[in-house]
Design a protein around this nucleic acid. Structure first.
Lengths: 145, 145
DNA sequence: AATTCGACCATAAAATCCCATTGAATACCC
DNA sequence: GGGTATTCAATGGGATTTTATGGTCGAATT
């Protein structure tokens, strides 16, 4: 299972890397906070353009202070990280803190993006979903789902 | 973490320097005041051209006093600073005062530009954003949660 | 003369690269 | 099918390189 090691390296699952590279031709991904949940959200590098488009759309012609606040919320904590030959990225303190990522990490595909969860938080925020709980526990036990 | 030392030198993060140089081929950046917030706004050197273009566009054919006023507003406190071999710029008293930059500084990407904040001011002006507060504290502590 | 700035070193810390090992999944062969 | 090679992903650890930052020294400024 993929996880964060003592040097704060997080190995990105190979299948995910493959889809990212076919989408963007870049050995890097963009990680930021999820808007509602204590997990990280990841995309290919086109995410920055998406944020920009959303800002331009939402604040068309408006350059007041609220636009800046929103931009800080969207861009501020989001980083582009390139991974090395073995497919690992280095997490800075703020992303680590945002996701409470220390040990194993659960990658969940969400269609056009994916989430990265600390197992404990995933279980805590999905206490009403026994199937997901079983899956997480199976993963932690070291077996495929 | 990057910060301002006793000689008023501010080290610019290496990744940021890299993007600046790929964008403009110049080992320098442009810093000025933000319109709304007590922080510095930074760009690559093409910012001057952007200002000029904005002026030319807005005051096409008009060389009256209002153009000068606008130019002063846009260019006034904005300086171009080149960084040395180790990636440090020297902040003048005006910029230092604008951002209240003495110790550590937080660089925030904003898409087509970035901001530089004194941590205390960043926290003070985002009291309604607990996640950002957490992030800043994680950065200052330099550790994982 | 005192201060400030700029170019240079020196060092510690951190990020990155590289190689070795583990282990699981797949292919292969009898 | 059972058992065995082979491949590739994930991970650990060491060596190397890059960054961040402190300091020194001389030139320039006032």
């Amino acid at each position: 299972m993929n996880g964060v090691d003592a040097k704060h390296r997080l190995s990105v699952p190979a299948p995910l890397r493959e889809t990212i590279e076919t989408r963007s031709q870049v050995k890097a991904l963009v990680l930021g906070p999820d808007e509602h949940m204590p997990c990280l959200v990841g995309y290919d590098v086109s995410y920055f353009e998406r944020i920009q488009a959303r800002l331009d759309n939402e604040f068309a012609g408006d350059f007041g202070p609220s636009r800046g606040a929103k931009a800080r919320e969207l861009f501020g904590m989001t980083e582009q990280l390139k991974y090395d030959d073995t497919g690992r990225i280095l997490l800075g303190p703020m992303l680590r803190d945002l996701g409470e990522l220390t040990g194993p990490a659960v990658f969940m595909g969400m269609g056009d993006h994916f989430q990265i969860w600390a197992p404990a938080l995933l279980l805590k925020h999905h206490a009403d979903n026994p199937r997901l709980a079983r899956m997480v526990n199976a993963l932690l036990a070291g077996k495929a789902a």
